[in-house]
Write a protein that binds this DNA or RNA. Sequence first.
DNA 1: TTGAAAGCGCTAACAC
DNA 2: GTGTTAGCGCTTTCAA
Lengths: 330, 330
Amino acid sequence: MSDVARKANVSTMTVSRAFRSDTSINEETRGRILAAAAELGYILDQSAVHFSSGRSGFVAVTIPSINNANFADMIRGMTEGLRGSALEILLGYTDYDVMEEERLVGQLLGRRPEAIIVTGGTHTDHCRRMLERSGIPVIETWDLPRKPIGHVVGFSNADAARLMVDHFVSRGYKRMGFIGGDTSRDTRGLDRRRGFVSALESHGLDATRLIASGIPPISMREGAAALVELMERWPDTEAVMCVSDLSAFGALMECKRRDIAVPDKIAIGGFGAYDLADQSVPSITTIDVGSHEIGAKAAELVLSLLAGHSVDAKRTTIRTRPEIIIGGTT
Amino acid sequence: MSDVARKANVSTMTVSRAFRSDTSINEETRGRILAAAAELGYILDQSAVHFSSGRSGFVAVTIPSINNANFADMIRGMTEGLRGSALEILLGYTDYDVMEEERLVGQLLGRRPEAIIVTGGTHTDHCRRMLERSGIPVIETWDLPRKPIGHVVGFSNADAARLMVDHFVSRGYKRMGFIGGDTSRDTRGLDRRRGFVSALESHGLDATRLIASGIPPISMREGAAALVELMERWPDTEAVMCVSDLSAFGALMECKRRDIAVPDKIAIGGFGAYDLADQSVPSITTIDVGSHEIGAKAAELVLSLLAGHSVDAKRTTIRTRPEIIIGGTT
DNA sequence: TTGAAAGCGCTAACAC
DNA sequence: GTGTTAGCGCTTTCAA
């Protein structure tokens, strides 16, 4: 910076001002400085900016997986929402593992983000404590935690699953199954299963046809395997809800391989409103949770919190409204 | 840190040592310090570490899109490769736009990463200059640039497309088309198209059946639309290569909707070896470029470069070997 | 194995 | 509109 200052015949303080939008500086001077900087290939050192100003310009975000269209959409929503602000996303993924989340959150907080957005409302005790003590806004997404740490942008996974059950019931199906992963890791998947079971019970239907197939997130392959297991154990099953569209697609393809008619012999529901659900033939009935909207709303919330428009400063909860999209598999 | 030092009855310098693995410190002292830190909820400020030591602990990575299984696999390979090192990935996505890449690279370099990994070998002049002047190792991936900026971990997209053409020829197809996006944005897609055309020409076949459908990355939907256009313009087409598995799947589903037999009436090839290609019924013939391996190799290269084992210090090129996976669509 | 002093590159606060 | 001074929270260097 002092090289640039020398070249432009100003002090470093003036160079500093030239790189900011919120200060008063002569426009001609700024032009001269930026030209000098460009010539020298100078790029403002953000870590020194952070160090000196106390503003890191980071919003930390954790997601379970980067290879997931829903979370990718959420990140996209955040990116767009933060555009124009001086905030960048510092992203990490947890592999659906709360221990890994704990490690990651510690690492991210070390970078002193100005806010942190995490997926889900289930964390290790230590992770929870770190978040509580962080002194920055904390936003939990994709869930409605019973005891939120701070703010929430989410929905009830159980209620979302209920939408699918109600749809199944309205179509006249009575014997229904659920395909998900081994339950302990993916707590949102577990919530969907719980919602499925309680919805069946409230309709007075049997709620025991539950297949747990592999470590979450379960993929197409596991969806296919689970369908086989389901049909072997309960051959008269009329409809199955899958924890995600990927497993639903896997199940659908398995039906095709085995010449099981969908939806005539068995109906299939998914979750997530992936492109795949829409483009598949037949298209897959699914639940749209508004991933992009979650990201956009979370970004908006971060911006108002940091601007000090204390939006109920401590505990804002924004609910999004999952919707069912009826396709050809039901 | 001084609070922790006071609590543990040592100097801040000793606290600093307690948080590192490469210094000599009494283990009992360290234990006392870490306990004090835990009690206070102290987290080492990495940005101050960076500022003081000059080591940011960041590796900057740009990818075209986060919603893409191939790039997600690459990131996964990098994450695993960097595990245990003190390096974290600072990730940004370009939306397949070189102007956005330029902006992003400037932003990332402002964080003073210790190395930068970018996707592709095509950049704006300014972006290229920033990378050249950055003073850190630069790695270009997913391509073999004619004039690399620094190091390369990639493959020839044109040669990879040739694999598919050769396979088509070996199956006896003669009238072949290509489905891709509007060409200027996705340069790797463009290279695949070039490879397709030149392979056809070297077999003495007609190479004019090229559909450009929408802004890259083209999705399932555009693949479906493009198939319709292809069959309308050249109804006797026997085989079509798609720029990615997503568009190939879209084309396949369109065939299903229109009762066009695959592969009997038309064969379909994709690119990228997505799970979808394997799980779809019929499975889609595709090219596996080893995304995970690209990430792993790039991470390995970064580690050796930063460790100073100057691996041909300036210009290492690591080629990966794309392979064809033959499925049911050809 | 531990501590004291200096300094990393920038900005806040104030003066002019 | 611009410059001066001090200092952000650590680590480097050197000494004990």
